[in-house]
Nucleic acid binder design. Structure first.
Lengths: 244, 244
DNA sequence: TCGCCGCAAAGTGTGTACACTTCAGAACAC
DNA sequence: GTGTTCTGAAGTGTACACACTTTGCGGCGA
């Protein structure tokens, strides 16, 4: 091992290196596959071909498998031993179940925020949402879904419980597909703006009970609409993107 | 699947195979490392040596890394790029945060159970807990913690929301270390028995409000005791297993 | 004595090899 | 024609190889 001119010449020589360097592929790959799974770019229950996916992403199977293993725990991918990784099923009951859990956590979220958030953070929240509201005409459903999630996550973050934030983010990823379709509905979109403002007002007033009530109403309506959104979602997955 | 003499000669041949076959190591390894992490058999913030761990478990690094990646998402392990996997820190605020989230989900749990559980399931729950109570003298803290968790998980399962069950199980794994210490306290142990029975009674009476109240009291006391349990936990991790 | 440089061991990150499983379809018996 | 057995291709599961990063340590200069 002595006189090994370790890195130096090595780096310089392979100008047209075949497989040059290693970075943190896993995180890139993880993010990429996560996005695909969230958006159901894999069909439900479809087997995910590792070699193909690895080729698409320009890496070997190793980081792909590590990323897939993470996504299994996240509930975005399932694993059947000796068969492979599969896209999660499109399971209406499961989605309803996630909405149910989410409602519970969002309740905790506003309770904690009402108790612990600083006035400044609450003011920022209102500014943020008023800004979104002002720009709403320029936003498509994707962007608006993102802002909607951000609104909720901000409230969770104000409660000072990072685990709560993590779990909500995880749930959001799994129901985003449905929520985006919900938000496409113009009427639903309008009520969302009002409901968010009502929640923010209640927080500003430190009215914990009202905040919880507003949040419950808000999420409750979501669940009601989710069913029709899921139908539409199924159509898009299996029939392509033309619709609305 | 009538006559399935599929494989035949293949299995018989490799009698003294050296390291012949592959099984689903990942799941075994995952369970093993999970158990270690749950019990803080790794010291907090300790780097986990992959080669060493792989050797201990009798497999190569590949399944170990896949398992570790899962545990990162579960929150039992952290990953620092180019440095390696580390045991999660022993973070009191985080543990309190997990108790907070758990309280919220347990509330949902009894609400759903009060609405949806069959009388039979509720009766089974009471039988189960009375059985545990009768045998309590024979159980150590580990076993009792396990039964305690099972009691709560049964209630969650009765609500018919598998996602709720999953999340509670995940949280339980992360706070089990503290809860086991809590349960060692004889006084705490006694109150737990009573509180669980009170919850079960409320469910039997379909009294949703009372069930929620009982559950809140139960978990609330847990949180209060958790702080002293955490102190004791730190001592055990760093000073060995003598105590109590 | 103190700080800096450089080296080498240790260990991670990823690509690759290979055994084993599954599955589909051909060949074949009835 | 129908069911069964075999066979080979496709693809997963795991071990292994190897480059790169990090880090501790010893020597060197001031």
């Amino acid at each position: 091992m002595a006189g090994t001119p370790r890195k130096k010449t090595i780096k310089a020589a392979p100008k047209a290196a075949p497989a040059p360097r290693a970075a943190d592929s896993v995180n890139r790959v993880y993010a990429a596959i996560q996005r695909m799974a969230v958006n159901f770019e894999f069909r439900p229950e479809q087997r995910i071909n590792e070699v193909e996916l690895a080729a698409t992403l320009g890496v070997s199977r190793t980081p792909v498998r590590e990323a897939l293993n993470r996504l299994v725990i996240e509930g975005l991918i399932t694993l059947v031993p000796n068969k492979g990784f599969y896209c999660r099923p499109f399971d209406a009951e499961q989605i309803i179940g996630l909405f149910e859990v989410r409602a519970s956590l969002e309740r905790l979220s506003v309770e904690l925020a009402a108790e612990r958030a600083s006035d400044v953070r609450i003011a920022e929240l209102m500014d943020f949402w008023n800004g979104v509201r002002a720009n709403r005409a320029a936003m498509d459903a994707e962007e608006l879904t993102s802002r909607d999630e951000e609104f909720h996550i901000r409230i969770a973050a104000m409660g000072g419980n990072p685990e709560l934030v993590r779990m909500l983010e995880s749930i959001n990823a799994r129901i985003r597909f449905v929520r985006r379709i919900e938000i496409e509905n113009p009427q639903r979109r309008t009520t969302t703006f009002d409901e968010h403002l009502a929640i923010a007002e209640a927080l500003k007033a430190r009215d914990r009970g009202r905040a919880v009530a507003c949040m419950s109403d808000h999420i409750g309506i979501s669940v009601a609409d989710a069913v029709s959104a899921m139908k539409e979602g199924l159509a898009r997955i299996y029939m392509g993107r033309m619709a609305s």
